[in-house]
Design a protein around this nucleic acid. Structure first.
Lengths: 139, 139
DNA sequence: CTATTTGCAAAGCATTTGCAACAGT
DNA sequence: ACTGTTGCAAATGCTTTGCAAATAG
């Protein structure tokens, strides 16, 4: 995801009678600039002009629109990333940082689970837990 | 995990100067009786004599002792289960219910991720998302 | 007898909401 | 103009904590 691609999201907003406000553009741009998995607070530190309520409300909106994903793992703070398929996450148990893993998707498990449990299956996630290099160095 | 096995946990408590109170026994027994993945509130509905604070405090304690696991997925409510390895979860996106999946553990991914990311890896989880039979029937 | 535990009420923290002022389109 | 959006302050909902009274060992 890069800055030009934000423009491709504008029609999506207009289609639903949602407005293209400077706050929305800044939140998406900041998400790109931080190119990781920031919390709502992380984003607000970068753009303190925008109220936390607006950041939360818009993150929630973007999740509903499918533009971004919410990652509720860890210590009660959600983290956000642009939607993309085919990747899993490693989570640092010390600092909560999340990194992407490129690993071939385990597609076969979904059908397996549907047969085994009677659930209708939509998707799946995997998270690997450990300690990031920074936290290892800090002890 | 069955009721007799609760007794095997008692020495673990005594070892750490923790007391075997009726509340602790009842919370563990209730977790067994519900044999699923209840929330703190679910447990309290079954044993309303015990205060929610005590339930939360003891669940937290049991997690620290490694007796149970906390499953923080979904909408801000944690669910709890007895510790056991080699299983993943299916989660109903409508009602939040969690069920176990028996699926061979994907051990190889942990080493892969350690090499790929520089994290020291401790463990991993997988959750499959969908709709449970009950919720499918309800529409 | 002594240190731990209970349970109430209050605090904490991330997130959401009500509402009046504001701003896209 | 019309309707969606912002942002403050207050509310919410889950979880934790302070502290006095109760209790396990």
């Amino acid at each position: 995801m890069n800055k030009d691609q934000i423009e491709s999201l504008i029609p999506l907003l207009k289609e639903k009678n949602l407005r293209v406000t400077p706050q929305r553009i800044q939140i998406l741009t900041t998400l790109i600039d931080m190119n990781g998995h920031p919390t709502a607070e992380d984003i607000q530190k970068r753009i303190p002009i925008i109220s936390l309520a607006t950041i939360y409300n818009n993150l929630k909106l973007f999740v509903e629109l499918g533009i971004i994903n919410e990652l509720p793992y860890g210590n009660g703070l959600s983290r956000f990333e642009f939607s993309q398929s085919n990747h899993y996450h490693v989570i640092c148990e010390s600092c909560g940082k999340i990194a992407d893993i490129n690993y071939p998707e385990l597609t076969e498990i979904e059908e397996m689970v549907a047969n085994l449990t009677g659930f209708s299956v939509n998707n799946h996630n995997m998270e690997v837990y450990g300690k990031c290099q920074e936290c290892i160095e800090k002890g």
